[in-house]
Design a protein around this nucleic acid. Structure first.
Length: 813
DNA sequence: AGCACGCCGACT
DNA sequence: GTCGGCGTGCTC
């Protein structure tokens, strides 16, 4: 930044709207650049700020000065500032918070007033002449200095200010400033080089000679690597450094998130279909904003297209971002990319430690590498000159972040591609209605892969009507004759099967046999689920758990019956049927540890697992050649969700899980059990008929004016007091209506639904109400919401009732 | 967010 | 009369 521009625009990492101007003192001017973190005085605290850019020159010394520059290299390129501004504006989220969300965790510090114990306080604590409250305060502060708010939480009682002041007066405690957060740092290691002293003629010990010889071949080696050659190096090297034989210096290294090395492979020959698509899209790379929707049946080779286009983009000197919906799929994508690009890629996802993530981030931000692969947050990858953004499995709901900054990475991919004049490539076998509709209106270009590679056939799908099985006993309640037969044949042939059930746990509906009431979570209006492994009932939303021998909370009867079924129960049934086979289960319960999912996928890959039972996780684009049977135990479970996307999600889920079958040489078979054999989502999934499904679903959406024919905004109100939340929702509802009727534009174009209790009326001990807005004119709705926020600051910013605004909501429960 | 300022009820 | 409750407003 040039020297005479001494005012900069800064976003602070606090929930305040707008940006702030600061003065740059001469001594820091050389270090200032957009994308760097700085420390600024804000109010009477010091907080992390992000440099957005230069504003001009001033002699006005009323501006506050920045205090420090935290980064050597910018954490994001200046070109991302407009992207952050767009997000802040569209999602109505403070700029500084947007950036904080985008950056790897642990980089933002905020200073806070805390109380600390004094030496005198320690002495008094030992003597113990004080009240119970004073004693618990001192005990808590002895462990760590805390803010009053956290202190009150720790000792589980409010602290009257009189007590705080009295303790300060007596000198037992004092006020201090403490930095919170900001623990993540670059990792540095000791590196060894030859020293200034010529050692060739000198007499040195054999170990020292070995070290010197090693350094001659590899001039710069880390102490860790040197240790592998000379195990005693850590002890000897400092002495050698003192003698001038070697030199030790600190160097930044990157933590290695990669597991085992991947062998390089050469590119396979493309099919004609693939070739056509690649050559069509690659012409646009580096030239213009071009959004594509790649519709490719499962197993048709979409990944190879991504790889070819990435290569093309890199060759043109531009960067690539690849978004993949979840961690397990990232490692699959990562292997494919690493086999072709080596370590020229960065991986970004939540499974990495903060340090690893930060390192990957820096490799991108420093311009060292140009390919980022990751989950939804990778849309914030700090790369410049983007040529290609790929969104794989673009229909996947996990691209929508469902807390804090509620962005949709798929939508942001389009926005960012547009800003960079880049190609956006959305790929899926079962695209979202939204994207499919965009191809019909020519916003996106559709390209299709209609054939599986190697001419493999799509699996045969059989539908079995479950309604005849209600009176069956034992496992025959859940397994039809067809499914049992199919499983038997598959096991006989030593092939693999997947059983899919969209529900975890052992029994989905524990019910009191005396009064008939279901066992429900104390915090959420959700049935508890029995988990055999831990012998406990658990809530899938807040994690509440009750002992497995609990009696009925309403009538006290001890006899709890288990109705319904979940993945865990299916696992025991199948294990009983096939005691010699290896039956694995994949759901959120078995995938708690980092790597446990990869282990299951590995087992599936090398054939040690015969049957895999799982929830929707198994439906996602994994690629296993040996699976010849896919059984869907109950296709209806997702149809009954109170959400207008239930049909779309059911179709996608069924088509995806069916696509897991027959990806190798042998043809696959799918058996789909359902209570609604005539439902069109299920029929279309049976025929893998994407186009028919979308035609019908789009008609339905249009008739009811649902997205993509309208845009939605949801306001969620939540709080601990049920009546307070309810009353607050009512008053906000009145304010919303008043504003609607205030303007003819609003009244004509916006439909307001609610306020009503949310479908999940209680989550994690917070009661929830919602108001939903729907309308065709997105900018108008946004203007309306902004005006609403502006006019009702008290309603939107309340102490006990939290207001959340969700733009383009996906999970409306 | 978090901190200061400022206006009303229950105590010395 | 004052102490301390919390609603309100501001932070370059």
């Amino acid at each position: 930044m040039s020297k005479n521009l001494n005012i900069i625009e800064v976003a602070v990492a606090l929930p305040v709207h707008g940006s702030y101007s600061y003065f740059v003192p001469d001594n820091l001017a050389a270090m200032i650049a957009p994308g760097k973190r700085i420390i600024v005085p804000f109010g009477r605290r010091r907080v992390t700020g992000y440099v957005l850019g230069a504003l001009g020159e001033t002699n006005d010394l009323n501006l506050k000065k920045i205090l420090d520059v935290l980064d050597d290299h910018p954490l994001f390129p200046a070109a991302m500032v407009p992207f952050f501004k767009w997000i802040s504006d569209y999602y109505m989220y403070p700029m500084g918070q947007v950036i904080k969300n985008a950056l790897p965790v642990g980089l933002t510090t905020v200073e806070q007033d805390v109380l600390a114990i004094t030496q005198q306080g320690c002495r008094f604590l030992e003597q113990g002449i004080m009240t119970v409250t004073e004693e618990s305060i001192l005990k808590a502060l002895k462990i760590e200095s805390l803010s009053i708010k956290i202190l009150e939480k720790k000792i589980r009682q409010p602290i009257p200010t009189a007590i705080t002041f009295a303790m300060l007066d007596r000198g037992w405690i004092c006020r201090k400033k403490k930095l919170r957060g900001g623990q993540t740092q670059a990792k540095k290691e000791k590196f060894i080089t030859l020293g200034h002293k010529k050692t060739d003629k000198e007499k040195v010990s054999a170990t020292r000679r070995k070290i010197i010889d090693t350094l001659k071949t590899a001039s710069d080696i880390s102490l860790r690597d040197l240790k592998k050659i000379v195990p005693t190096a850590p002890r000897i090297v400092p002495a050698m450094a003192a003698a001038g034989q070697v030199r030790i210096h600190q160097k930044q290294v990157y933590r290695d998130p990669f597991g085992e090395p991947v062998q390089r492979t050469t590119a396979p020959v493309l099919t004609d279909e693939q070739k056509k698509i690649v050559s069509r899209i690659q012409d646009d790379v580096g030239k213009t904003f071009a959004p594509y929707l790649l519709v490719g049946v499962t197993g048709s080779g979409k990944t190879e297209i991504y790889i070819r286009l990435a290569q093309e983009t890199i060759d043109k000197g531009l960067s690539v971002i690849i978004l993949v919906p979840e961690i397990a799929l990232i490692s699959q994508m990562e292997r494919r990319f690493r086999s072709r690009f080596g370590d020229q890629i960065a991986i970004l996802h939540s499974g990495l430690s903060p340090g690893e993530r930060y390192d990957q981030w820096l490799r991108l931000a420093s311009g060292e590498i140009h390919i980022a692969i990751g989950a939804r947050s990778a849309i914030f990858a700090p790369v410049e000159n983007i040529g290609l953004i790929v969104v794989d499995e673009e229909h996947d709901a996990s691209y929508k972040q469902d807390s804090t900054l509620r962005y949709n990475a798929r939508d942001l991919a389009i926005v960012r591609a547009k800003q960079h004049k880049a190609v956006a490539l959305l790929g899926s076998a079962t695209p979202s209605i939204q994207s499919y509709h965009n191809t019909l209106t020519n916003k996106y270009t559709q390209v299709s892969l209609t054939k599986r590679i190697m001419e493999r056939r799509l699996p045969d799908i059989t539908i079995v009507d479950l309604s005849g099985m209600r009176d069956q006993r034992g496992y025959r309640r859940y397994f039809s004759e067809e499914l049992l037969m199919g499983l038997e044949k598959t096991m006989q042939r030593n092939e693999q099967a997947i059983l899919f059930l969209n529900r975890r746990g052992f029994s989905s509906l524990p019910m009191c046999s005396a009064c008939g009431k279901p066992l429900q979570c104390k915090n959420c209006d959700i049935s508890l689920t029995y988990h055999q492994q831990s012998n406990a009932y658990r809530c899938h939303y807040c994690g509440f758990s009750a002992a497995g021998n609990s009696s009925c909370p309403s009538c006290g009867a001890a006899d709890i019956r288990h109705l319904g079924f979940g993945t865990e129960k299916i696992q025991t049934i199948v294990q009983d049927l096939y005691p010699d086979k290896n039956i694995a289960r994949m759901d959120r319960d078995t995938i708690v540890h980092k790597g446990s999912m990869l282990k299951i996928l590995k087992g599936l890959n090398d054939g040690t697992i015969d049957v895999l039972i799982g929830t929707q996780m198994v439906a996602k684009g994994h690629d296993f050649p040996n699976i010849t049977l896919v059984g869907v135990l109950c296709a209806d479970l997702s149809l009954s969700f109170p959400d207008f996307r239930a049909g779309e999600q059911t179709f996608q889920l069924l088509a995806q899980v069916s696509g897991r079958a027959g990806r190798g040489d042998r043809p696959g078979r799918v058996i789909l059990q359902t209570y609604n054999p005539d439902h069109f989502s299920i029929l279309c999934a049976k025929h893998q008929d994407v186009h028919r499904f979308y035609d019908q679903e789009i008609t339905f959406r249009k008739a009811l004016n649902y997205p993509p024919f309208s845009r939605m905004v949801q306001i969620i109100l939540s709080g601990r007091d049920i009546t307070q939340v309810q009353e607050h929702a009512r008053s906000l509802g009145i304010a919303c209506e008043a504003l609607l009727e205030n303007s003819k534009d609003y009244a004509k174009a916006i439909v307001m639904m609610g306020p009503i209790e949310a479908p999940y009326a209680k989550i994690a001990a917070r009661y929830r109400w919602q108001i939903l807005f729907k309308g065709q004119n997105a900018p108008l709705i946004h203007r309306y919401i902004r005006e609403l926020m502006h006019q009702n600051p008290k309603l939107m910013n309340h102490r006990d009732v939290k207001t959340t605004i969700d733009i383009d909501p996906v999970f409306m429960m």
